[in-house]
Simulated assay, not measured.
Amino acid sequence: MNQTLRVRVNRIERLADGIKRFTLKRSDGLDLPAFESGSHVVVHLDGGRIRNAYSLTSELGNLGHYQICVRREEASRGGSRLMHETLREGDELQIGLPANLFGLHPGEGKHVLIAGGIGITPFMTHIQALARRNASFELHYCFRNRGAAACLDTLSGLLGPDQLHLYESDEGTLLDVATLIAAQPGDAHVYVCGPQPLNDAVVAAARSAGWDSARIHYEQFRNEVDATGGAFDVTLSKSGMTLHVGPDDTLLRVIEKAGIKVDCMCREGICGTCETAIIDGLADHRDNYLSDDEKAAQKTIMLCVSRCLGPRLVLDL
């Protein structure tokens, strides 16, 4: 079972329309584990039935508490609604240890950070790390309006006008992604976190400009995917179990209900931690992690969102 920590909600603050910041302290009073910039923790809600990943936004090196920012998602599985509506200061939670799927490149080149909406959260620690390295960097922050934008005051205090670039769509100020990418030096790295259209636009612009994939970094904080579909059976070769996956259930949930522990950070087909080898059968891939070639090869499957194209799947579990 993944290691967890018990924490207490020390403070809840409203940062912007529909966005709250939660300050978490370890329940036993000890320091929390150290983390690198771009890291996240998985928050366990509703008795562990809902697990959502949130970027850490607190000060690097201050291990007396963690801070996360949560936007209330009307179409979510319920995690953000629970955080906003039922969680109170003094309540206890379980969280996973910090993990990082969006780290900074260690090189000396320029770092171009592009955030959309709540996608600003991983950059709150990245800008700290880059400042400590005396690195060349700039932040481009896209949002609908100032009332819905988190961390604006903090960013204005941390970054100079040559580093912080704001784009407020309600005021007609939009980021020209292609022009921004074209203006970068040959050693630059670009990082983007935001809605999928923004992520896609940045990745496409960088690839069109001839950038090597090693210089393109992105984190998708939400994968809008329908994980439901036709029923099928799954056989777990190592455990000898055969389980039925109903049309409204997922592989991951069925396997967990059977008592099989599987690592999965995002539960939305983004992080790749639940990747499992396929022994027999064809997967209906719905993740946003495997490449098109990897999906066509039918060697592995993401248990959290993908399904089976036929009546039966055999997995290496």
Rank of each mutant, 00 (worst) to 15 (best):
G29E: 00
H111V: 13
L56K: 05
I270D: 01
A135F: 04
P195T: 11
T242F: 00
A201E: 06
P106K: 09
V70E: 00
Q220E: 10
N62H: 10
L251D: 01
K238N: 14
G210S: 09
S76W: 02
V234R: 00
H189Y: 13
M1T: 15
S80G: 06
V7F: 02
L315V: 10
E138T: 09
V254E: 08
L290A: 08
K25S: 10
L104Q: 03
L63P: 03
N134E: 11
Q67S: 12
V305R: 00
N52I: 15
G259V: 10
D293V: 14
F232V: 04
V70Q: 00
G18E: 04
I301H: 00
I50E: 06
H189D: 07
A204K: 13
R267E: 08
E74H: 12
A75K: 15
Y66P: 00
E74K: 15
I95K: 01
D187M: 08
A277K: 12
Q220G: 12
S213R: 12
Q163D: 05
G116Q: 07
D28R: 01
I114F: 03
G272Q: 02
D17P: 08
T300I: 09
D31K: 05
R312K: 11
E268K: 08
A258N: 06
V225S: 07
A178I: 10
G157P: 01
R14T: 14
N62P: 04
V192T: 13
G157F: 03
A201T: 07
L104G: 01
R72Y: 06
R49L: 12
C193E: 04
T242M: 06
G240Q: 07
D170V: 10
E275Y: 11
L180P: 02
L139R: 07
Q184M: 14
C151R: 09
L87Q: 05
D233M: 11
E13Y: 03
